[in-house]
C-alpha cells in the first residue's frame, strides 16, 4: 500500500473534519515562473487546499480562450518543463501545499514519460491529471505514477456512461474530477443542470473524494457546486483575476483576497 500523497492526505483530513475542499488552477509560468510561485503561495494563504498547476502546451484543445491565452503567455515567457520543476522544487522549500500537475500528454512524452514522472516526483509534485489520456490508453503511465507514489486523477464527464465511470474511478487515485458540463474550460454564468446527476452517479461508484469543476466563477456558484461534492475546482476565473491584476503585488493581493471569498463560501457549506 502506498503512502497517501499530500493531495489524498489533505482531502481525507477535510473529510474527517466535515469540511469541503477548494482546488485552484493556475497555468505554470503565466506570466513568469517567479510570478506563479508567488501566486501559489498567496493561494495557499487564501485557504486553497490543492493547487492544480497547468503545464503549458502549444495546442490546448480542451481549453477555452482564458487558459489558451495563459499557456501562450507562459510559453512566450520561456516556461519549460525543467524550469517549471525548478519552481516546484523551490516552492517545496517554503510550502507543503498539495500540487497536482494538469497537463496534455505530448509535453510529458517528449523526454520519456518515466523520466518526466521522476522529475515531477523529485521536485515535489503530488500527481498528474492528463487531459487527453483516457483510461483505455493510460495503464502503463499510471503504473509508472504508482511506482513513484504520484496520484493520477481521472476525469468523468456528462457523456461518460456508468460503465466508463466505473472504469475511470477504478483507475484513479487522489480524487475524481467531475466535469460539470460539456465544453471546454471557461467561466459560465450558472451550474450546468447535469452536474448534480453526474456527481451522484460518480459517488455511488467510488470512495475517492469527488471534485466538481469547469465554469465556476462566483462564491454563490462555488457554494452551490460543492453541495454534492467534496471539493470544487476553480480555474479560468482565477487565471483571469490574476491576469487582470497586472501582476503587481497589490493586484495579486487583491486577486488572492477575491479567491479567499470563494474559499470561505465553500468552507461555510
Amino acid at each position: 500500500m502506498q503512502n497517501a500523497t499530500r493531495i489524498a492526505a489533505r482531502l481525507a483530513d477535510l473529510k474527517a473534519r466535515g469540511k469541503k475542499g477548494f482546488i485552484a488552477y493556475v497555468t505554470g509560468g503565466d506570466p513568469s515562473l517567479a510570478a506563479t510561485e508567488d501566486i501559489i503561495l498567496r493561494l495557499e494563504d487564501a485557504g486553497v487546499d490543492v493547487v492544480e498547476l497547468g503545464v503549458p502546451f502549444s495546442d490546448p484543445l480542451a481549453d477555452g480562450p482564458t487558459i489558451q491565452a495563459a499557456a501562450g503567455r507562459a510559453l512566450a515567457a520561456g516556461a519549460t518543463w525543467s524550469r517549471l520543476m525548478g519552481m516546484v522544487a523551490r516552492l517545496r522549500r517554503r510550502s507543503e501545499v498539495p500540487l497536482l500537475l494538469f497537463s496534455y500528454l505530448n509535453p510529458l512524452l517528449v523526454r520519456g514519460f518515466d523520466r518526466t514522472a521522476r522529475d515531477a516526483a523529485s521536485a515535489g509534485a503530488d500527481g498528474f491529471l492528463i487531459l487527453d489520456l483516457p483510461v483505455e490508453e493510460a495503464a502503463k503511465n499510471f503504473q509508472t505514477l504508482d511506482r513513484l507514489n504520484l496520484d493520477h486523477v481521472g476525469l468523468v464527464t456528462p457523456t461518460s456512461p456508468a460503465e466508463r465511470i466505473k472504469r475511470i474511478v477504478a483507475a484513479s487515485s487522489g480524487f475524481v474530477y467531475c466535469v460539470s458540463r460539456e465544453g471546454v474550460t471557461g467561466v459560465q454564468q450558472q451550474l450546468a443542470p447535469g452536474a448534480v446527476k453526474l456527481l451522484k452517479a460518480t459517488r455511488r461508484l467510488t470512495k475517492l473524494p469527488v471534485a466538481l469543476g469547469f465554469g465556476i466563477a462566483t462564491p454563490q456558484h462555488a457554494a452551490a457546486a460543492v453541495q454534492e461534492a467534496d471539493a470544487v475546482v476553480v480555474g479560468s476565473a482565477i487565471v483571469d483575476r490574476f491576469h487582470q491584476a497586472q501582476h503587481t503585488a497589490t493586484g495579486r493581493a487583491a486577486a488572492a483576497r477575491w479567491v479567499g471569498t470563494l474559499v470561505r463560501a465553500v468552507k461555510k457549506v
Partner: peptide, 22 residues
C-alpha cells in the same frame, strides 16, 4: 487489449474523456 484503432504503435484515442463515448 482494449487499445482501439492501432496501426502498429500508432493511432489510438488520445482525447478528453468527454469525447470518448461520442
Amino acid at each position: 487489449a482494449g487499445q482501439p484503432g492501432r496501426f502498429g504503435p500508432y493511432g489510438g484515442m488520445f482525447v478528453p474523456e468527454i469525447l470518448m463515448e461520442p
